[in-house]
Amino acid sequence: MSATDTQPPAPPPGAAPLAPRAAAPERPAARVIRDFAKSPLAMIGLAMLVIITAAAFLAPWITPQNPYDLRSLSIMDSRLAPGEVGFSGVSFWLGSDGQGRDMFSAILYGLRISLIVGVVACTSALFLGLSLGLVAAYFGGRIDTVIMRLVDLHLSFPPILVALILLAVMGRGLENIIFALIVVQWATFARMARATALSERQREYVEAAQSLGLSGTRILFGHLLPNCLPPLMVLYTVEIASAIALEATLSFLGVGLPATQPSLGLLIANGFQFVLSGQYWISLFPGIALLLLIVAINLVGDRLRDVLNPRNIT
């Protein structure tokens, strides 16, 4: 769809065929933003993402209670159905859990932890993978072989298994789960960074830069890196979603975050014991929050993929 939207005007007669961009002086970033905004679905995703993120980080100021301040909890309010008014006269719009915790507040606090874990882990994995991928592509030879063998070995095992083992080794904890997620994800980034850098390396301009006597680091950071970024940004977005989902799964299984840092996964796990007695809300609403977050990220990622696809850049 977007391919036909972005057709450039026919080049004027006599224009050099090697400079198709000459007719469109628009900056690439501006084009990306403009193209991105053309998809209503992606804009909805972006809006959802902004609202969720804002709500998560403003949680201490906008939630009716601090769910982890034990003084504000009352056991009298435990397991209230959504909309019920509690003992203290506060309404629990999304119900309350077994300790009388307001689910809405708990969800916002949980979202904050999930987002932080996902973003921190993914960003670190991105930098690690990008560096190793670039190094492999730039130096080639034995370094490349070693790194890529490691990547292949790594990718042949399901991420959940790798994370499970690591957490089994290290135990629960915020730092540990972030470390486990980095270990799970770096290889994906490394592989893509290497692939794009390699295809970029074979282009004429790198050869030209080398023949001009530019230093290796200059070529690496000035030329290869910028060209690897668009596909990596797309991957980064989707990987945040999968990191959040994986963290939630691990926390649900009881090997992820400790009970003092209740992410969405832990909230859902806590609610699971009440599901059989029909108190659905304790598991259901955190799950919906998680789902909305993941879907929003994926919608944005999907659109970015279309917009940043080099084949669409005319």
């Binding site: 989902a245 599901v275 059989l276 029909g278 799950g287 789902l291 994926n298």
Partner: peptide, 28 residues
């Protein structure tokens, strides 16, 4: 697309909520 996005463990809980608890069709 929804199938991709729904985390596996939460989807399991929903299955239990709907088909075991609410409808009673399958064992838990």
């Amino acid at each position: 697309i929804l199938g991709f996005s729904v985390p596996n463990f939460w989807q399991a809980i929903i299955l239990i909520m709907v088909f075991s608890v609410a409808l009673g069709w399958f064992p838990v």
